[in-house]
Design a protein around this nucleic acid. Structure first.
Lengths: 187, 187
DNA sequence: CGCCGAGTTGAACTGAATCAAGAAACGTGG
DNA sequence: CCACGTTTCTTGATTCAGTTCAACTCGGCG
């Protein structure tokens, strides 16, 4: 649980403020390539990644489109389902073996009324995600695939090498052949 | 103020629950083509559009990129600045003459502790925006400019005709010439 | 050892960008 | 209310980046 505690300490919370929150944490694990949640299901957990990488994708025109990755020491969930309890439109899979610390929606709601950290967490999680999406939107509208790849290399170098090319290509909005050529071009 | 009251009534709030909120509302107005906020400023208001259309844009590579529009009877603000009080990266301009009902950040914070509607508003505003952005991301990654335009026509028909083509083109991620040809093709 | 999915490479094709020129709409001042 | 200048939109010709399709290589795994 240390990775999670460290995460909150960096946000300025002390360990005993965390206790009610930590008491609700369940651990879950998935093997590489396992689906964690599928379209049509309802997301019941907000999860912190202790170990591993997960991939978000949607299926459109019979193709998987990778919309995001989440890495070690960050929260993820099927946000389009978790808050309003509707069916999710996305799939989330484990890219590597994954170890999660999860809190259920129900426990989170109970904490919401009497635990400061939870309120802050809920708001920050959504706001961070939003600013990430806005940044990505601008990126998609203004940059070429090659520029997007170079930026990704700069910002997430240690992860890129662990993720199969075809998923990164899809995330950048190109076919695998194109990403292969981009890599060749800039090397 | 009727448009704002109606908006909240549809969300299930009664008019007297609204009173503390409504007491903080200032009206503001802008002429067509006026900049409401510019990059580097801090957003002080969350605003509801009583009349008019606003356009969000960023400047990248010396070009204006339109990232969104907001219409009559919806809230808007420079969300990347409002909550965390940082400098915004975006510009917001009035596309038409605009009439706003605005609440300041300070008043909103004061209301936050004792007014249910405010809590709900803050959370919903961010969540709605997020789900809109996720939808847009998928749209940008999976659809052709022509498909994006047809979808826009379907979903916002009454507004499209009021917005200059060049802004819509930029929103769709194409140059104006291309949108002009798309329009010709499908008519 | 051979299979299979992932990645690479090549050639032909296609849709959007660019560049350029002309037409239409817009508003501003006389 | 009209005339002129500016901006917006349209249309055409050319170029270019990314897709498609196909063939081939490489590495892991039964």
């Amino acid at each position: 649980m240390q990775s999670l505690i460290t995460y909150f300490e960096r946000m300025g919370f002390s360990e005993n403020q965390l206790t009610p929150f930590l008491n609700c944490i369940k651990t879950r694990q998935y093997k590489a390539n396992e689906l964690i949640i599928s379209k049509g299901q309802i997301e019941n957990y907000l999860s912190f990644i202790d170990v591993g990488i997960v991939r978000y994708f949607v299926v459109a025109k019979d193709k998987e489109i990778t919309i995001d990755f989440a890495f070690k020491s960050s929260f993820y969930c099927a946000y389009d389902s978790f808050y309003d309890r509707s069916d999710t439109d996305i799939y989330i899979e484990a890219l590597t073996d994954v170890q999660l610390y999860s809190i259920s929606h129900k426990d989170l709601q109970n904490l919401y009324t009497n635990c400061e950290i939870t309120k802050k967490l809920g708001r920050l999680a959504t706001e961070n995600l939003l600013s990430k999406k806005v940044k990505r939107e601008i990126n998609l509208l203004t940059k070429s695939p090659q520029e997007r790849y170079e930026e990704l290399l700069r910002e997430q170098p240690k992860y890129i090498l662990q993720i199969p090319l075809k998923f990164i290509a899809s995330y950048l909005g190109v076919v695998p052949e194109t990403l292969s050529r981009i890599r060749k071009r800039i090397s």
